[in-house]
């Protein structure tokens, strides 16, 4: 295997949890809801995925449990912000705090337990293509799912009627409501989808990236996913590009350490966090562009009146 091939493989591995979590949050935000609980949903997905795979011996059950774990937590969020009209910022934060707490408690029994690794699936014929084959077509099911989600969400948002409704709800909930669409139902579905995606992103960490349970193993990836959605101007294609760039930044630290550059590891570990800040600054300085792309009712409460 060539060096470039190996590097691309590790970039995909580092980026996939970000793609999964961020594509879900993109749909949530397109519907006008800002869920700051991505980090919490991811870490709960990581622990439920690990626990289920461990109990059944089947990593696929783990994948399903990861999605379910994130979804259950997101349902709590949806109930609070949609039906109790709670503050979205504060509720998202609460979700992250609760998720980190719950995962620590559930995961305590699994510290040091060897995990079950999700295997690779070679796609016949395609995986034999030189270079591209091993990189794109000899991956695990979650990587394929992440590719499919980017394409699928892009199609859904801009080519399907339901996607149009979702964007309408996000851009003007009062009008969408007046037209007879159920704003809360659309948003509820979007939040659940986002929760499942975040859970899968977490599950990728505990089933593939480092197949074991480590407390706080998401290490801020949920927040980086939130930043990626802004970076992508709420567009799925750009989001994928951003996620792979961040994956590259994340694995840069391993290669730099291996190469023996005399930079302390802590500074290399800071890179993704600093890169997030830099990227956010670069993208937000253009106020017009941000205003054009941000779903117009993002973060605003909605109470149906009649």
């Amino acid at each position: 295997m060539g060096v470039l091939e190996a590097i691309l493989l590790t970039v995909i591995t580092a980026a996939t949890p970000l793609v999964l979590a961020a594509i879900g949050e993109l749909v949530v935000e397109r519907s006008g809801v800002l869920n700051l609980g991505v980090e919490g949903m991811m870490i709960v997905g990581a622990v439920t995925g690990f626990a289920a795979a461990n109990a059944t011996g089947s990593p696929l059950v783990g994948v399903a449990a990861a999605a379910l774990g994130g979804m259950v937590l997101s349902a709590l969020f949806a109930f609070l912000i949609l039906f109790l009209v709670a503050n979205q910022y504060a509720t998202g934060l609460a979700l992250t705090l609760l998720g980190l707490g719950l995962s620590g408690m559930i995961g305590e029994a699994y510290v040091g337990t060897p995990g079950v690794r999700l295997g690779r699936i070679d796609i016949p014929v395609l995986s034999d293509i030189p270079f591209l084959g091993p990189v794109l077509f000899s991956q695990d099911i979650l990587v394929y799912l992440s590719f499919a989600l980017v394409a699928g969400v892009s199609w859904f948002l801009f080519r399907s009627r339901a996607g149009l409704v979702l964007r309408a709800v996000g851009d003007n909930h009062a009008s969408a409501h007046a037209l007879g669409f159920s704003v809360r139902r659309v948003r509820f579905a979007a939040v659940l989808f986002g929760g499942a995606c975040a859970g899968l992103g977490g599950g990728y960490l505990s089933l593939v990236y480092t197949p074991q349970w480590i407390e706080g193993m998401t290490a801020g990836r949920g927040w980086i996913a939130l930043a990626l959605v802004v970076f992508a101007s709420w567009l799925p294609g750009r989001l994928a590009v951003g996620a792979y760039l961040f994956g590259a930044v994340m694995i840069l630290q391993f290669h730099a350490q291996a190469a023996g550059i005399g930079i302390p590891s802590q500074f290399l570990t800071m890179l993704p966090y600093l890169a997030t800040v830099v990227v956010l600054v670069a993208i937000s300085r253009d106020r017009t562009r941000i205003r054009l792309n941000t779903p117009a009712t993002l973060g605003q409460p909605f109470v149906p009146d009649r």
Binding site: A90, L98, G99, L100, G101, G104
Partner: peptide, 16 residues
Amino acid sequence: KITKVFQGMLLIYVLA
């Protein structure tokens, strides 16, 4: 670890 669960729950209930 149950401390953080209590703290998270408390904030959720406050907001609700």
